[in-house]
Design a protein around this nucleic acid. Structure first.
Lengths: 247, 247
DNA sequence: CCAAAAGTGTTGAAGTTACACCCATGC
DNA sequence: GCATGGGTGTAACTTCAACACTTTTGG
């Protein structure tokens, strides 16, 4: 992140972030609402902006995410580059670009990133050109500015692929949780039901969770044991991966 | 690929191609040797160059590959963007850039692609700033210009990951082949031996190959049946993927 | 007849799916 | 006592890894 002679905006390259969060409502994605410059525009967008010319791509994604939503220190994984020449050409998007960009007609390639966070630990706070930053259930998103819906679909695809070869959840759940939370998370990501007994058996075999020998209180049903992740095993499996989880 | 007012070189974005080929010698990668501008530089590089500002990324990769190596109409899959600010800063690379680029100090982000081809169908022919275009066994590549070695490693990783969820080989083998060719291909990509009987059983179960009821001739050992791919089943599995091939 | 690669089955272990009931709690 | 979700085991089946010998050809 050192500064050099090129510490200025690179008008041709941007970064966009797909941040997934999770709660009982299911899988959510963090969107910003752009400050409106006219009526009838699609103002929901992924947090994203141009990078600096001397800035590493990963650093740029972190910075932009922080500037627009306040979220920082999040592990971001690259999805890829999106560079269709007409990706910014919808009329309502052009109008908006004219209001915020120095060179609104520039052809911009974006490098997209995604991440998973625990919604309760990260409270987004909009700033810069974001009017608000909100969690929206993934299933309710049907249109976004620019080509962001396409980017979201690619992020989901990558997440679904990732979940088959490494554990997922550490970043999405609170430090203490019950197994049905994890169960719901996996079902949300995969978009289909998973057998409860088989799910528990597999998770236990992986050794990524351990019971705290505490129970829930105040629930109107049999209280569940409370678990935490076994960080060692979890990390090891993130690095090694597994071929075959059968989900 | 329509031309517009911006049909000029985009000095900030390039594309690089990792083209894998296969023969009995194992997995190879297509490299160009840059025309030397001084002594002692690393002149082996991936085929790659700047894109045009009105050019789709996928189209740009096709064009650049063709310009440098003569290969055309190859299905290229994106690996991702590589944009470390110092990726072009090795002294020998800088010197070379000064000889070919209008803005040799520009910070360039590259979008990398990879593909698999049948070496016998594609005979590379160097042109432009490529002095030669040659197949090099992947196992023998240890250094490359710029960050190209890193890009090669990422391509290999993606290929090894891909082979676990969909069939591979159609683009790498001739139309007719024997099962041991396919076997060797899988071993080359994965970098480890696979049991012959188990491999054949799995391939047969997938239904991606079918025998032509012809035998090899002129081989000093029991002749093998000759096979071709069943394109329907192959394509279907490329699209659907499988979770679990156990390689 | 020798060298070389082709081709082929079985077995024991592990993993997969599908499925139904009792339990502990709050109200 | 009722509603709610928690928690548990088994059986049938499929998949997996490991392993060795016979066959066909060219020279």
């Amino acid at each position: 992140m050192s500064l050099n002679k090129n510490h200025q905006i690179n008008p041709k390259i941007s970064t966009d972030c797909v941040i997934f969060g999770f709660d009982n409502e299911g899988l959510q994605v963090l969107l910003i609402e752009r400050k409106p410059v006219s009526d009838r525009e699609e103002n929901n967008a992924l947090p994203g902006d141009l990078i600096y010319d001397d800035e590493d791509l990963d650093d740029a994604a972190q910075r932009v995410l922080k500037e627009l939503t306040g979220l920082s220190d999040i592990f971001l994984e690259q999805i890829g580059a999106f560079g269709s020449p007409d990706r910014l050409s919808k009329p309502e998007d052009k109008k908006w670009l004219e209001s915020v960009r120095q060179y609104p007609d520039e052809r911009v390639i974006t490098i997209a990133y995604y991440s998973l966070v625990n919604k309760n630990l990260y409270k987004p706070q909009a700033s810069s050109f974001a009017q608000s930053a909100v969690w929206v259930p993934v299933s309710e998103v049907t249109t976004l500015a620019f080509d962001h819906f396409e980017i979201l679909k690619a992020a989901l695809k990558q997440l679904r692929s990732k979940i088959k070869t490494q554990p997922v959840g550490f970043n999405l759940l609170p430090a203490q949780f019950v197994l049905s939370d994890l169960h719901k998370l996996y079902e949300s990501i995969l978009g289909r039901p998973l057998d409860k007994r088989n799910f528990r058996r597999k998770i236990n075999k992986l050794g990524i969770v351990e019971s705290l020998n505490k129970k829930q209180t105040g629930v109107p049903h049999k209280p569940s044991l409370i678990y935490k992740f076994n960080e060692e095993n979890y990390q090891r499996l993130v690095e090694e991966g597994y071929d075959n989880f059968g989900f």
